[in-house]
Computed example of a mutant assay.
Amino acid sequence: MKAVLYICHGSRMQEACEEAVAFVTSCMERISAPIQEVCFLELASPSIAEGVAACVQKGANQIVIVPVFLLAAVHVKIDIPKELGRLQNQYPYVSFSYGNPFGVSRKLVTAILDGSGMKSIGKRVTLLLVARGSSDEGTLRDVRAIASLFEAADEVEHVEVCYLAAAKPRFEEKLHELVQTTNAPIVILPYLLFTGLLMKRIEKTVRKYNHSQIVLCPYVSKNQAFQDMLIKHTEEMIRENVYVSINGANKE
C-alpha cells in the first residue's frame, strides 16, 4: 500500500506549525493516496521518524516523501535524505521515493505577481525579494533566478535581493538603503512559505518606517498556485512518473 508523507520545516511558533498542517491538509483532500501524513524536520512534532512510523502502522510498504519547501537548500539536500537513509535501514521492507521542493518556477512567479496587488499601485515598483538565506550556493543561484523572473514583469522597475540569515545583504540593511535612495514604491515580497519568527521579524522591521510607499506582500503560501503545484507534483510521484530517490538520482 502506498502512502504520502509531507515534510514541513517546523517552527517554534505554534501558529506557523498549524498553518503548515492546514496547508498540507487542504492539499490531501485532492490527492489520491490511501495513507497521508504530515510531519516536521525540526522544532515541532511529529518528527520524520514518527511520520514514517505512522505510515507503516497503517500498512504502507511504499512511502512517497514530499518536502514542503520552497528551494533545495541544505535541509532538502542533506538533512532529510540523511534521516530517510536511517529510516530505510530501520524499515528495509518499505520503499521510499523522495520528491522535489517547489524550486524555480515561472508559473509560481506569475501567480505571485497576479496576487500581489502590484498592478493596482499604478507605477513601476522596486521589488525587494526577501529570502530565508542559505550557505548553499545553489540555493542562492535559485533565488537570483527567481529575482530575474520577477524583474521581467511589466510592473517591476528593479529587483533587489536580500536575506534573513546565512547570506548577505541582510534584509534590514537593504530596506534601509532603499528607503534612503529610491523614490519608487518599495514592494517587499517575503519569499517564505509560511508565517513564523522570520515573517514576524519582517513585519516588525517594516513598522519602524513611516514610509507611505512601502507595501508588504503576504508570504507565498497564501497563493493558491502553491497548493496546485504541490498537488500536481505529489500525484506525479504517486503515479511513479517522476521522482527523486534518496540517493539523489533523477528518475523519469
Rank of each mutant, 00 (worst) to 15 (best):
R86D: 13
Q62E: 15
Y93F: 06
F69C: 05
I78C: 11
Q90A: 12
D79C: 09
A72G: 12
L87H: 06
L84S: 03
L70N: 11
V66I: 14
K58R: 15
H75A: 08
P92F: 13
K58A: 14
L84Q: 01
V68T: 04
Q88G: 06
P81T: 03
D79P: 10
A60M: 04
A73Y: 07
V68I: 14
K58L: 11
P81K: 04
N61Y: 09
Y91R: 04
N89P: 00
G59W: 07
V76T: 11
Y91D: 08
Y93H: 12
C55K: 02
K58H: 08
V66P: 09
V76S: 08
G85T: 06
V74I: 15
V76N: 08
V76F: 14
V68R: 02
G59D: 00
Q88L: 01
V64Q: 10
V94L: 09
R86W: 03
L87I: 02
K82Y: 04
P92R: 07
V76H: 05
C55I: 02
N61H: 15
D79H: 08
Y93Q: 14
V94D: 09
A60T: 01
V74E: 14
L84I: 02
K77M: 12
A73M: 14
I78R: 15
C55P: 00
L71V: 03
I65M: 02
L70D: 11
V76A: 11
V66N: 10
V94F: 09
F69S: 03
A73H: 10
V68A: 10
G85E: 13
K77N: 09
A73D: 12
Q90D: 03
V64S: 08
Q90L: 09
Q88E: 07
I80N: 05
V64I: 15
G85Y: 05
A60K: 03
F69R: 03
V76C: 08
V66W: 05
A73N: 11
G59I: 02
I65R: 01
F69E: 05
K82A: 11
V64F: 14
G85W: 01
V64E: 15
I65L: 05
I63F: 06
Y91C: 05
K77W: 07
P67L: 12
E83N: 10
A60H: 01
I65W: 00
Y91G: 06
V74W: 13
Y91W: 12
Q90M: 07
I63T: 07
Y91N: 09
I80V: 15
L71D: 00
I80M: 01
L71Y: 01
Q62F: 13
R86F: 05
L71A: 00
K58T: 00
G85H: 11
I78H: 15
